[in-house]
Nucleic acid binder design. Structure first.
Lengths: 223, 223
DNA sequence: CGCCGATTTGAGCAAACTCAAGCAGCGTGG
DNA sequence: CCACGCTGCTTGAGTTTGCTCAAATCGGCG
């Protein structure tokens, strides 16, 4: 705990978190690491060495109860930073959902963090704040929303983050969605089917794609 | 977003978050503010000016859906810091649960933040990390735990934080507990009654006190 | 073409919810 | 000092949403 706030003061930190900067030319600092679909990135209890930025692919981070119940606390898409922890040991596990490339940063690596006018350091703080906001949204979803509302919120959020307005390519299985939304796989499936029957979405034969037909209806369900 | 990480590097920030330092002589920086039971500290949509540290009393922070459903994302006890936000507008509301004294800090106030070797700045970062960990625990609770497990986890967590081992004085109503645990007030009440019938807890006539009779049983429910 | 894992669908069940009373603690005022 | 009423909590009865268990279907792939 030796964070210095010497140069800029604390104020601006808690002002708007700007969109993540991301160099498109692949010159980001950090070591590239490749993971295959389903491969473990780290496990609960591991020593924390790195944190990561998704370059391509998708990642799930999750916690387990002793009897195997799982809660996926987030899906991470290109540009997202994950793997920040307060302690020395991982409290969550992380796996690649699909073939995934990550940029890995040693969490104490000053070189990487201060290079480029501290752009990465800015990103890291922004990532923490964003993670907190997402967690708040998700607690509302898990604590107070119906299955239909949960699925609607999930689809809208994913569409927004992925940028692919209208058609979403789901990188995760029904089981993953269920463990994220606090539902069973059957409830997720039934809810999607009902949303399709009601003309709100369409589910092409390829079940890993969802078309958002009636965004207004989805937004109404979003609260 | 101008946080400087110049002096210490980022590494140590993500090492262990030490216990909050708190001067017992009342010489903490920050303006004292007093709130009565039920009084609003800030509301969703307010402009963010301060963040707070609880000196005495208890606070709830919450979010609302348009139809009035409420999710309390946390209760804040003496020593806790709350009211940190990424944006310029409040995304959560906050009320005092009981008569409460807060230390208020302007979020851009360098004087307060750099005084005392940046002790408060350290606390602020630690508070963010702790808030994130609590949010993860709470998502697991909301997404995957039964009513009985939720209440057990809640009681254990409160006992640990309040330090009063064995007997807990609840500063919040059943409605607040329900809105925190994603249950209805009736379910909270029934679950407490059942835990008492099973000898796990005792509920003295004064319904704002809970005695933890069988912590091992509670821990088993905590998963 | 036929297998295999993932998804969907069906039937019945159960945990938690809703609606509705009843009760207890506490402050107020007669 | 006690009755009254208010608020918060508990309890009961019946309903509902989402779960469990089970089977059918689908898409991908060898």
């Amino acid at each position: 705990m030796q964070l210095a706030l010497a140069t800029a003061g604390l104020g601006p930190v808690f002002e708007a978190a700007p969109a993540l900067r991301s160099r498109q030319d692949g010159t980001d600092a950090g070591t590239r690491r490749r993971f295959e679909a389903g491969e473990e990135i780290y496990a609960e209890g591991d020593r924390v060495v790195h944190f990561y930025k998704v370059v391509s692919g998708a990642v799930r981070t999750y916690r387990l109860l002793s009897d195997g119940r799982r809660q996926i606390d987030g899906f991470h898409l290109p540009g997202d930073i994950f793997g920040l922890e307060a302690g020395a040991e991982r409290r969550t596990g992380a796996d690649a959902l699909t073939g995934t490339t990550l940029a890995a940063f040693r969490r104490g690596d000053r070189e990487a963090l201060t290079g480029g006018a501290g752009a990465l350091a800015q990103e890291v703080v922004a990532a923490m704040l964003r993670a907190l906001e997402r967690a708040q949204d998700h607690m509302m979803l898990l604590g107070r929303k119906s299955a239909r509302e949960r699925v609607a919120s999930f689809l809208l959020g994913l569409a927004e983050r992925a940028g692919t307005d209208g058609a979403i390519a789901l990188p995760m299985s029904r089981t993953d969605i269920a463990d994220h939304l606090g539902l069973t796989i059957e409830s997720v499936s039934r809810t999607l089917t009902r949303l399709e029957r009601d003309g709100v979405i369409a589910l092409p034969a390829h079940r890993r794609t969802v078309l958002l037909r009636d965004k207004a209806a989805l937004r109404r369900l979003n609260a």
